[in-house]
Design a protein around this nucleic acid. Structure first.
Lengths: 217, 217
DNA sequence: TCAGACATGTAAGTCGTTACATGATTCA
DNA sequence: TGAATCATGTAACGACTTACATGTCTGA
């Protein structure tokens, strides 16, 4: 009984697209889902075995000899059911543990300059993230206009395995949802950057007021 | 060697305010820091012992008999140093693992209605969070105007332990930084809600286009 | 020919939570 | 008197990461 963890269903969900090997899944997550998900091999392979033992997936030995032979995993009807049931279960609120926020809060008794430095570091970090997102968004918007999937995803998903009967409208939908997922990240980053500006303004105003505390009551 | 984990420094940072017991720290985190941090007893007490073993904190047996006697932990100069050094170390980018985002992404091959439902669930959840934040913000803004700390924090921090020599300006600063920390949460929630609206608009437009796919190319 | 991608897996360790055990004190 | 809160701790588990071990195939 390997837990009711999220990794199980993340994998199951990806297998519901098409049969894949552990290596494929890792690639797909790293390349396409990295903005909101991650998996390590140490989780991946044991979990795949677990899915097979529970009858949620089937393992098929692919071509190739020795270590080079890919194991293809396919979702079973039972697995499909379990996946949909999970989709419909309420999601837990992610428990918050944000290091930068913690540091900023704990800096309240340090010199103001320390808090300002933390804010600037955060801003620098988030600006970099925004750049990454912006590039992805440009690629994706183009894909949405064409109703296709973008290059990297295409590679992993679209070659041999995809059902050719999938209507173009469905492909467009997939791209749209991928785009929206990315938009979530972008709006979040922009909110964080707006917060940095607000914070820097507040702290600098506070610093000025303390240098010449004129109208004090 | 109990890891270079974040819990150690979170605790150290709180002890840098004033000596506290494990129970105090848990209360303080639950009541005042819950928007961006959490600690469990299972981490707390062993970590406190670890800090003492490393000479970063000192344990002092308080009044009371048997199990009721509080253990007060105070930071040492070495601990203070370690804390400040941590504050200045670059923070790691939190690795992303967002269940709702994952579900939304994986819903791309389900009926559109499923994606819309997920978005609505997310919106409902985030609206509740926004209410909580709004209440806290009102209390905090009042406290900032007065240059004091708000009730709950006052309780844990301000009674006997606080240095009476702390200038009023410093108290105002602490309240301001607390307020800014909260603002981070608020801006984040509002960004998520804005995303929900954007997403719902997009998906509904997409649904309409597929019912009567008139101007197709 | 050999670096680098392909491919699978395991062992050990970190980090954290939940649930429980224990007992004192307060107050309705 | 007995429920709630104060207070400290531990045991067991769960989720995940890192680092390693092993071997194959491809292409410059």
């Amino acid at each position: 009984m390997p837990g009711a963890g999220k990794t199980r269903f993340a994998i199951l969900g990806l297998l519901s697209w098409k049969p894949m090997s552990g290596y494929d899944i890792k690639k797909l997550v790293d390349v396409g889902l990295s903005y909101f998900w991650s998996e390590s091999y140490g989780q991946l392979y044991p979990t795949l075995d677990g899915l097979v033992r529970e009858g949620l997936a089937r393992k098929r030995r692919g071509a190739g000899r020795g270590r080079r032979s890919r194991n293809l995993y396919a979702i079973t009807p039972k697995g499909q059911e379990a996946f949909v049931a999970w989709l419909r279960r309420p999601s837990d609120i992610p428990r918050a543990r944000n290091e930068i926020q913690l540091k900023f809060f704990l800096s309240s008794r340090a010199p103001l300059a320390e808090s300002i430095r933390l804010l600037q570091e955060y801003r620098r970090q988030q600006r970099e993230v925004r750049e990454l997102y912006a590039e992805s968004e440009a690629i994706l918007r183009a894909a949405v206009r064409e109703g296709s999937l973008p290059g990297e995803l295409e590679e992993v998903l679209a070659d041999e395995g995809t059902d050719p009967a999938t209507p173009a409208g469905d492909r467009a939908n997939e791209a749209l949802i991928f785009l929206l997922t990315l938009r979530h990240g972008i709006l979040a980053v922009e909110a964080r950057l707006a917060w940095c500006e607000e914070g820097l303004r507040s702290l600098r105003r506070s610093a000025r007021n303390r240098k010449r505390p004129r109208g004090k009551r």
